[in-house]
Design a protein around this nucleic acid. Structure first.
Length: 543
RNA sequence: GCACCCGUGGCUCAACUGGAUAGAGCAUCUGACUACGGAUCAGAAGGUUGCAGGUUCGAAUCCUGCCGGGUGUACCA
């Protein structure tokens, strides 16, 4: 609908001879300002060389004189807005699109034949996922859903490293617990892992092998068993929130297929590598960064930046059109170096979108809990899901902008769950379903001409809201900010609840009005359900 | 010190990416079901958007400088 008005506006502009580059049409938050509004006169005033109000009235006159059936009323308002009311019949007619498209309503094909790789979670298998990982996981997954609704082919990828120092320490920690089971008390190594799950892993090894590995602290069985056990645990948790990865990328493969060496050589060929103090440096300053970085230590071991560069290169070589990285704020400093390197290697770094989310501060008894996987004082994502449920968990993490430092009060989480907006939205959906159940006619045979009875302001506002859904989806594919969708759904639900309380829908004395309104309710149901689907939240028919 | 993020009613957060009277939810107060589910609705109260300048028709949003909080700033990942 907005597009249609935009077309009318554009053709009017070109007839007058005004520039058509800067045209913004918005849905005003204040319904008194009409169905759509544009600030065109103000932002183009300088270029045209006339006052905004002058421009506005010229445009309004032009559109009025062309007598378009789409427009009911168009006005110029100081300091230079143009407000439009759409013909109500045209508006209510659009509901048909929603009903017809049904579960596809809101989808578009801007990403058709394009593929996107989204890397997220990427936690190394050193322990269960924390609440912090949860934010990353749900943000990433929702971004995937959004892109899918915009027609992209999505690959969800989990990158991990099972070779580093952390993993070695993990294995050693398991060994200590294993020895404990054999009656020997050893010290947990410096920086070792203290979580209870380490004991579980040790128990598994003990149960199957008894004392076979006594004294054999470096045996790879400790690390390997731990990795398998932890990954199983992680996948179980991810499954609980409905998340499934398409691929797991092991950092090791970059070494096995020589991508690491190849990357160093190619950077060298670009004259971006030099040796200093026995280490190998990447000349990041040449790419606009403020300092050079070591990529191979004097010990011969690469720093994490090198495999990261090689990994991103691999992503490009797999020919994705869009590459999204979802990182916590701790990667703030690292990724620009990676992008600088990628750019230097002649890849189109604009394809990469990096989403940085701030950390989650967990409050327990009003005190922040300092989370550390090693120290095992983290709050696991798994226990959070068990406590508040998958829907609330998902919704909670995307309803806020990723830029906020999220405070998660554990004690409040449970209490608040009754007042959580997710229930508000789900209830609106359940309400729609309930009304459709109560409706005694046949949904499919509603005469669409009855829609012209939807004349109340509150109805056109609801219809307008429903029709902006596809636009919300489209826009979120650009911003990659899922909270736009949850905000939208909360607003839509509010409009609906309000309508419900004010107007009787099912009225046996007025069959035709009932049909029109039930049609509207059905459309509302579809939009809410689709919106929740994008967020990965269930849309119950009863609660 | 430097880089990035944040600062919005008592609390947790929005604000269509520069638009019109800064909006919700919790908490507080007042109302609303013998008709579609009260997990709801209608209303009240609560604000100098951290502070000070600047940019322009217009700023919570952009720029500069302070103040306060977070994260990072390794030949750790």
């Amino acid at each position: 609908m907005k597009n249609k008005f935009q077309e009318v506006l554009l053709s009017a502009l070109s007839e007058i001879g005004y520039p058509t580059e800067k045209v913004i049409v918005q849905s005003p938050k204040n319904p008194d300002h009409g169905d759509f509004t544009t600030n065109y006169p103000m932002i183009n005033s300088k270029e045209i060389g006339k006052s905004p109000m002058e421009i506005a009235s010229i445009i309004v006159d032009k559109i009025n004189s062309s007598g378009n059936e789409l427009i009911d009323k168009i006005d110029s308002i100081p300091p230079g807005f143009i407000n439009v009311k759409i013909n109500k019949d045209m508006l209510s007619n659009q509901l048909k699109q929603i009903i017809l498209s049904d579960s596809d309503y809101g989808k578009n094909d801007t990403g058709k034949n394009k593929s996107a790789l989204i890397e997220f979670v990427s936690a190394n298998p050193t322990g269960p996922l924390t609440v912090g990982h949860g934010r990353n996981a749900i943000l990433g997954d929702t971004v995937c859903n959004i892109l899918e609704w915009n027609g992209f082919n999505i690959n969800r990828e989990y990158y991990f490293n099972n070779a580093g120092r952390q993993m070695r320490v993990l294995g050693e920690s398991v060994y200590v617990r294993y020895m404990e089971l054999l009656g020997e008390n050893l010290e947990i190594p410096d920086g070792g892992y203290e979580g209870l799950y380490i004991k579980d892993i040790a128990k598994i090894i003990f149960d199957t092998h008894q004392e076979k590995f006594k004294g054999d602290s470096s045996n790879k069985i400790f690390k390997q068993t731990a990795e398998e056990y932890i990954f199983e645990d992680i996948e179980k948790t991810l499954k609980k929130i409905g998340l499934k990865f398409d691929s797991f990328f092991n950092e090791n493969t970059l070494y096995d297929n020589n991508d690491i060496d190849r990357t160093v050589n190619d950077l060298k060929a670009k004259n971006l590598i030099y040796e200093k103090d026995g280490a190998t440096w990447f000349k990041a300053t040449a790419a606009g960064r403020d300092m050079d970085r070591v990529i191979i230590k004097s010990t011969g071991e690469p720093t994490y930046r090198l495999p990261d560069i090689a990994y991103h290169r691999d992503k490009f070589d797999r020919n994705f059109d869009v590459i999204v990285d979802v990182f916590g704020a701790d990667h703030m400093d690292a990724y620009p170096d990676v992008i600088a390197a990628i750019k230097s290697l002649d890849y189109d770094s604009d394809k990469i979108k990096v989403l940085i989310h701030q950390f989650v501060t967990v409050l327990k008894n009003g005190e922040p809990v300092k989370m550390s996987t090693r120290k095992a004082n983290f709050i696991s994502l798994d226990s959070l899901i068990d406590e508040v449920g998958a829907d609330v968990t998902r919704f909670f993490f995307i309803m806020r902008s990723m830029n906020t430092h999220l405070n998660f009060d554990l004690d409040l989480a449970k209490e608040q769950s009754d007042a959580n907006p997710v229930f508000y939205i789900q209830y609106a959906h359940a309400r729609c379903c309930n009304m459709l159940r109560r409706f005694e006619g046949d949904l499919d045979s509603i005469d669409e001409s009855s829609l012209e009875h939807l004349k109340l302001d509150i109805e056109t506002q609801l219809i307008n809201k429903l029709l902006t859904f596809s636009e919300v989806i489209r826009k979120s594919s650009q911003t990659l900010e899922p909270q736009n969708i949850s905000n939208y759904l909360a607003e839509l639900s509010s409009s609906f609840h309000s309508y419900y309380a004010k107007e009787r829908v099912i009225d046996s004395d007025n069959k035709i009005l009932t049909e029109a309104r039930i049609y509207l309710v059905n459309a509302t149901r579809i939009v809410i359900r689709n919106g929740l689907k994008v967020l990965g939240v269930s849309a119950p028919e009863q609660m």
